[in-house]
Design a binder for these strands. Structure first.
Lengths: 303, 303
DNA sequence: AATAATGATAAGCATTACTTATGAATATAA
DNA sequence: TTATATTCATAAGTAATGCTTATCATTATT
């Protein structure tokens, strides 16, 4: 059986005339006749009683044509569903982000994506890089915003922006006297770091040329907010990525900030996704929306 | 799009593996792959996100495969309906009969057809030959039991039985003295006839070598019962076909009967149908059932 | 008797779908 | 690291299916 056959019998039952039915189906009358005959043979049922002058629908034909109508209607729904789904900017989208980005990027992004991607249903998840990468590979996430390029060759990225690192230190700390702070000026023994697994921990250690053997502090914060609060409590100094600097929160909280003055003291932020992800256009659009709302403190790569 | 394509995507969504899905569909993996790719192109939607190691159903794919399941289910119903309809002995059947047969043939026939054709839904209609023939040609009837062969070349017949004519006359009528009554013995001026349009009127006149100019009586009965009752009331004599003789009704009703002793004094009864009627096997079976219950007074042609 | 209408049939061509063989990419095992 | 296996995609050739035009057979209509 064939979907076109169903259209043929529907057309014949409507016109009760093979020639006109064929015309309506944009085929020749012999084509339609032979297809119907073949279908009747396949079903073992005569659908139309016909002689050289008239066409009648048989009892069995009536039942079967009613079902054919149903089937064609469902098949029409398939095309409709496809048409709806064809817009890559619509549907569900599961986005993951690391904890050192999510709180600073998402508030703006949610607002802007509502305007730019109104028919997109966004779901967010916050987790560390490794688990986000696993989820990407398994298909549990569609994309993630990460600060490290992917290791798997199945993943690809859109580069979003470079985010400088800033020092946060208590008011009246020695660092306050520096006009320009560089990593070599940092008191590494006072450095407060995130817990293991957080990529920014590695990035901070990296920029300060520390390795795990150098660790002096046993603080294992899981958020930059915690680190900043600890600095305010004069527990040490820390680094944060630029986006974590909220001027209103910093001012009057007992901490001071300076941008790290090294060329390499930044991290690159990527939108990571499976190469096989079908809605690539959405990824591009989404990257645009991300970059739209970026503050002056970061250096956008796109647009 | 193609029904087989729907089966392919259903299979892939079940196995999440093109090779196994192809195996389940009894096609080679490249065949299945290329058909799915073509369908995706036609719909403009990626149904499966796949790389060299894994297959995932996309959001749009999920919706569309659900609809494909629906469509396949309806199409399954088409095959089921065909299987049910394939039995030519089932379904509706519209049978027409003339008034000089219906009352005598149907009671038995209904009983016997219930046993022999249990899944047949019979609808009866009683009318005169011309209108039954029209209904046959227009498809309003599937068959008719008639006493005249059809004129249209679109109709065909199964011969059922030959039905002799009998004379009915009042007790103590002159005819009572005949051992064997022949048509030439009939008092044609006393002959009571059915209304015009009834074929038995013509047959009776024919056998008596009368034509419309010979009419003396203006009686226009529409049933044989009326004629018999008129004979009982000594209004004249009449002819009836053999099946109209119900011994229990005749005895003691003031009439007497004799079989007409002419070779040509009978009529042949046909099951008439369109040549194009698809359930020919049903017609044969039905003819058998008719002949089963015939009384000894008629001469069956079949079986 | 001639003409028109209508579905069936025939022959040949175009399209479609399938098969087998092979490729490319990537896991897994040695 | 290198070899092997897995898996989907691609290629080339073939089989099948469906279509077109031309024609036939039958039956109304003029």
């Amino acid at each position: 059986m064939n979907i076109r056959d169903l259209e043929y019998i529907k057309s014949v039952s409507k016109h009760l005339h093979f020639g006109e039915a064929a015309l309506a189906c944009n085929v020749s009358q012999p084509a339609l006749s032979s297809q119907i005959k073949k279908l009747e043979t396949e079903l073992g049922v005569t659908l139309f009683e016909r002689d050289n002058r008239s066409v009648r629908v048989t009892d069995a034909g009536r039942d079967i044509i009613a079902l054919a109508d149903d089937a064609l209607s469902v098949i029409g729904n398939i095309y409709s569903a496809a048409e709806t789904a064809r817009d890559p900017l619509s549907g569900e989208f599961r986005l993951g982000t690391i904890p050192t980005i999510a709180p600073y990027l998402f508030p703006n992004f949610v607002t802007q994506s509502r305007a730019a991607l109104p028919s997109l249903k966004l779901q967010f998840r916050e987790d560390i890089t490794d688990r986000l990468n696993d989820s990407l590979l398994s298909g549990d996430l569609d994309a993630a915003i990460l600060a490290t390029p992917p290791e798997s060759s199945k993943l690809d990225v859109i580069e979003l922006y470079d985010e400088p690192f800033w020092v946060i230190f208590p008011e009246h700390h020695d660092l306050q006297s520096f006009k320009r702070v560089r990593t070599k000026d940092l008191p590494t023994d006072e450095l407060l770091l995130l817990a293991e697994g957080h990529c920014f921990r590695d990035q901070a250690m990296d920029v300060c040329r520390l390795d795990s053997s150098n660790e002096t502090y046993t603080v294992r914060a899981t958020s930059l907010e915690t680190l900043i609060n600890m600095v305010a409590a004069r527990q040490g100094v820390t680094l944060v990525p630029a986006m974590a600097l909220n001027p209103r929160r910093i001012s009057g909280s007992g901490v001071d900030t300076q941008k790290l003055n090294d060329k390499s003291a930044y991290r690159r932020i990527y939108l990571t996704y499976r190469k096989s992800f079908p809605r690539q256009a959405l990824l591009q659009k989404m990257a645009d929306v991300f970059c739209e709302g970026l503050p002056e403190t970061v250096k956008r790569i796109r647009g």
